[in-house]
Amino acid sequence: MDSPGGEVEATRLQKLMEERNNRVLVVEEQKENEEKEKTAAREEFYAKAMKEFRESIEGMGEPKEPYEQFRDHWMELWGEGGHFGDFEDNTAMPPMRFTLCGPRSGCTMDTLQFFYVKVASIDDSLQWPLDVYGFVAVRDVLDRKRNMIFCCDRDNCQTINQQDPYLALTGPTRGVAVSGDPCYFEVKLKLKGTAESEDKDFSLFASTYRPCCPKRMFTSKLSTLEMSFQELFNSVEATISVEVTDGSWPDGFRGEFSASTDNPPDMKVNLLKCVDEKLPAGADGKIQLTRRVVSVELDGFLKVSIIAHCVNVKPKICEAIFAPERCGTSFNSEIEVGSCRMKVTVCWSLFGLGP
């Protein structure tokens, strides 16, 4: 039989255990409530942060494409006050600015010589051939405006195929100067659809050119373009014209006119490629070249080549070589292709800032 003292002790221990368990339950409940409060506070904080973030994005509008960022950059630097005109303006600075002036009127400059622009690859969703229109331009320190390398509108788009993916260059319209300030390549090409509403962006970008990093491959939208160009040093501008002075272009031959310099010796600037046997000459005999402005290093030379092609006949090649001048005019009237006698004229000019 248990003693009364043992029963009292057991009761006291049981009470202590109940009190301990009650304290544990209270502490656990407090911890649970605190955790719920912390969770609610975190959720409220994140909800508020997300709301503020969404409101800031809506205030900014949609993120701008790099091309639009370039436009804003140009407007901020050179659009203020309208001194350089509008962003869409083409250069109004002509070639031959100092041809009739003295050799001290301008200066030689480093320049860019463009050889070709071709479509290196296209998106898998596209199929050759492609109808392309738009422009490829370069902006330099002389006036910050577009100097067109390639330009055609929708109604006169160029059809390119996988075998001949080269754009038909028509520029630059004057020499492209390189200086401490960067040049900018600007490209806006579209694909012509069956209706204008079905046209697609083919290439859209602006890229900075600096001599230390001459990038030549540009991927944008649905294509990758490859540009071939060369930086020339201490150079002058040469404007080329060709005139038929006697006779006529030989029947059955297609004409190809090009210019080259000793830097680089293996590259040429296409001045004209006749798609048929007709030579595009006016009533005055002047041939309508698609390109006519090139750059020449002052200690180098300029070579103008005329090639007559005919099926199953060896091409006829004629060349005229010129030593560059700071100003003035050079000509050669000894080029003959069959009975067709031609005179090549080169107008030399230095460079200068401003109008």
Rank of each mutant, 00 (worst) to 15 (best):
S220I: 03
K221C: 10
K221H: 11
K221A: 02
K221R: 11
L222D: 12
S223T: 07
T224P: 04
L225Y: 00
L225W: 00
L225F: 00
E226A: 03
E226H: 10
M227R: 03
M227S: 05
S228W: 06
F229H: 12
F229E: 14
E231N: 07
E231A: 07
L232H: 01
F233N: 07
F233E: 03
F233M: 06
N234W: 14
N234I: 00
S235T: 02
S235H: 02
V236L: 05
V236D: 05
A238H: 00
A238N: 02
A238G: 09
T239C: 10
T239S: 13
I240Q: 01
S241Q: 12
S241I: 04
E243V: 10
E243H: 10
E243K: 14
E243C: 08
D246K: 15
D246V: 08
G247F: 01
G247N: 01
G247D: 00
S248P: 06
S248N: 10
S248I: 11
P250E: 07
P250D: 10
G252A: 09
G252Q: 09
G252F: 02
G252M: 10
R254V: 12
R254L: 14
G255T: 10
E256H: 15
E256L: 14
F257T: 00
F257N: 00
F257G: 00
F257H: 01
F257E: 04
S258N: 05
S258D: 07
S258A: 11
A259N: 03
D262L: 07
N263Q: 10
N263H: 08
N263E: 01
N263C: 01
N263P: 00
P264T: 03
P265F: 03
D266K: 12
M267I: 06
M267T: 12
M267F: 01
M267D: 12
K268Q: 15
K268L: 11
K268G: 14
K268W: 08
V269E: 06
L271S: 02
L271A: 01
L271H: 02
L271E: 04
L272A: 02
L272H: 10
C274F: 12
C274A: 13
C274T: 13
V275R: 15
V275N: 12
V275E: 13
D276L: 05
E277K: 15
K278I: 08
K278T: 12
K278S: 13
L279Y: 09
A281T: 11
A281L: 06
G282V: 09
A283I: 06
D284P: 06
D284N: 13
D284F: 14
G285M: 04
G285W: 09
K286Q: 15
K286G: 04
I287S: 07
Q288N: 12
Q288S: 12
Q288D: 14
L289A: 07
T290Y: 06
R292Q: 14
R292E: 15
R292D: 15
V293N: 11
V293W: 04
V293Q: 05
V294M: 03
S295D: 05
V296C: 08
E297M: 10
E297R: 07
E297Y: 08
E297K: 02
L298C: 08
